[in-house]
Amino acid sequence: MIRFILRRLLVGLVLVVAVSALAYALLYANSDNIARRILGQNATTELVARKTAELGLDRPLWQQYSDWLVHAVQGQFGRSWFTGELVATGVTSRLSVTLSIVLGATILSAVVGVVLGVLAATRGGWVDRLVQFVSILGFAIPGFLVALGLVLVFSLQLGLFKATGYVPPTSSIAGWLSSVTLPVVALALGTIVVVAQQVRGSVADARERDYVRTLRSRGLSSRRVVARHVLRNAAGPALAVLAVQFVGLLGGAVIVEQIFAIPGLGQLAVSSTVKADIPMVMGLVMATAVLVVLVNLVIDLAQAALNPKVRLS
């Protein structure tokens, strides 16, 4: 088990480094352009050259990258080119906001998706058809349209929740709940239907397995076999879907934060992008990659706990 965890960690680390290299190449390749964007279109060539040298962008790309990597390992990601804020501080101060929305949406979609999926697979009939119908709708309509709809109806028309802004839980739990409920729901809807579909499929699949008949032939009730054996075997594929969906939720958070005016990573990402604040964007990319790798590690461990074959391989 220890070896399994270590191997997964190593793979994750390699992945993070690979992502950083690619992101660095993409972001820093066009050094002339960067200086010009900072200085404005009217800057002279000389000024641009001086700025480029000042930022260290005139060195070969691999040298810049290895420099960046050495600093990054020590936790130094540089400063914003515009506000002078430390990238590390900028990212970590907004991380908890985004995490509370994304993790909330992950948990919500896991719980609701599993319940709906299991109901659809075991009850069949109209429950199944309803889940199928809602799934198509939920899958087809882009999440940010749903978010806009929720804002219009629940905040502007009914006034039930805060339309915009974020209240940290440290200042008011009720205010925090009110400010995150709509974003979490808006974010989770699309994921719920994907999880529900996957769970429905894998439960239906597991129910058709030979061992289900054999277990029932031993005198175990159908309900017991579903609860103990079918669900456990269906959990693996559902977890795999959740891992993929988490990446999607992180992306969705960027847009949802914008709609609800929530000061998270997404908002920082948008403002840094507009200004072409490259160090900040780089820091955000890294934060996202590390989050994804960590969540995948957790899900891998859960898989290993569920499935003896994964554990032993």
């Binding site: 992502v19 992180l250 960027v254 996202t288 990659a289």
Partner: peptide
Amino acid sequence: WLTAIVMALPAIVVLLAARAALG
């Protein structure tokens, strides 16, 4: 491996980075 790298980042984050670098 390439697939894993591409899947490790939300598309929108990559697109933001590209927008920042390439306009």
